[in-house]
Amino acid sequence: MEADDIVIMENSLRYLSRNLIFPKKKDVNNPGVIFHLKFIALNLSTVMFLTGNILHLTINIKRKTYINLDLDIALAISLFGSYYFNFSYIRQVKNTINIYKQLSDLRSYGIPKDFYATNKKLNNYSKYHYIYIVSAVLGLSVAPLLEYKKCQKENVVKNINEICGLIGSIWLPIDLDSIPYKQMYYIFQVYSSFVIYQTSSLISFSIMETAEHLILRLNHVKHGFLDALMEREDRVRREKFSRAVKYHVNIIRISKLLNTSVSTIMFGHVLLTGAILGCIEYRLLKSYSLGAICLFVGWLISMSMVCIGGQRLRDQSLSIGDAICKSNWFDVNKELQRDLVLVILRCQKPIFIDAGPFGYMTYAMILTVLKTSYSYLTLLSSTS
């Protein structure tokens, strides 16, 4: 059963709506063609940022000059990865709406303990995350202005002609190193950064927040099983047990729908984050760069948020079987004991946030990505 309205994640969904990647409240039941066209138009308006970066990278490789090659690769992968996030999310937005509606259903199985307190806490965290991501993009935007003189000195020392004062190295078939074209393009880069990076970071936070709501439901399921086993009357015990089983099956179904929606995003996240971090680490070993630090922290936090949520979801799903084993299960009749064995066996298969062929989003995945980034760092160091 689904709720008529979504009553969870109010702040996150409002921020996503502002970025045109989630429908407004009045359109949530039917996000039509206009909604998708607005999203496509917004993202297409930023494509020149990625185009200029890729052209700079291509020309430097072709000429074998390799100027700022590490930052070019990191920025290109970072922009491409964010587009990948955003378009993968919008492609599954109807499934995502379905998930939020099912998690907003407080009638079928009751209101989980601490639901309102947890929802309020997550809404506050969403505000803090929004402030953080705005600050991170501002840091990325201000960095080239703070490092303007440093860039000019590098041009003289290395006898090159890079355009200073822009977010990353770019090349376009027009003279950008003059007033007002450079200033106009810088403003365009700042606008594009907010559209692209802010949206992708909000998606990562919303996935973590969804995992937290699933954890809340799993805890509710666990207490449902324990309450059934404490019941003395066989008929009432069986009714409560059957209700808990149905609730558990429903949560498993929602978790599978979540993986249908986000596994493609997580696959890209794991695949690209290691490369981005490795390139930035290589740059930071050579020289300080505020913009590079902002990118590094942004991608690492984005990955860590989902992995922490995924680890907690895994642990909570396993805790149901552990709690049943520690209960007075031996006091119930043999028929119910046989059913308990089936429940415990199912609980041995934990619920994860799936990352496709890379496995699952857990603490171990953070270490895997960091190891991958070190491999890229070693590769870049050996070829420089």
Rank of each mutant, 00 (worst) to 15 (best):
I215D: 12
V245N: 03
G278W: 02
E231Q: 13
G110D: 05
K158Y: 11
V47S: 12
F115N: 12
E10M: 12
F194V: 12
L122H: 00
G224W: 13
Y130Q: 08
L57D: 02
L55A: 08
F358Q: 04
R14G: 02
M365V: 10
V28D: 09
M9R: 06
A143R: 03
P180I: 00
D27L: 12
I280M: 07
K24A: 15
I320K: 06
G359W: 00
I59G: 00
S12T: 14
L75Q: 06
V245G: 00
G224S: 15
I366H: 11
G310S: 02
M9Y: 03
I174P: 06
F296Y: 11
L336C: 09
K62Y: 10
I111V: 15
L140W: 11
K101N: 04
F35G: 13
F267P: 05
D5F: 05
M305N: 11
D177Q: 07
S126W: 05
R91V: 04
K182I: 10
L214A: 13
H220W: 14
Y376E: 05
N86L: 06
Q198P: 01
I353M: 05
K334D: 07
H56I: 00
I324H: 01
Y186V: 12
S381R: 09
I131D: 09
I353K: 03
V262G: 11
T264P: 02
I73W: 00
K222Q: 15
R235M: 07
Y109E: 14
D177Y: 08
P180H: 00
G359S: 05
R18I: 15
L257K: 08
P31T: 10
N161T: 07
H36D: 12
L295C: 02
H56M: 06
I61A: 01
L55V: 08
G291H: 02
N123I: 10
I196G: 04
Q189M: 10
F225V: 09
L44M: 14
N95F: 04
S78E: 04
Q198Y: 08
R91H: 11
K24F: 14
C151W: 06
I265W: 02
T58W: 03
C151N: 05
Q311R: 01
W329H: 14
T96C: 08
F358N: 04
G356E: 08
A117G: 07
D354L: 01
L377C: 05
G309K: 00
S201W: 13
A211N: 09
I324Y: 01
I59L: 10
P173Y: 07
Y116A: 13
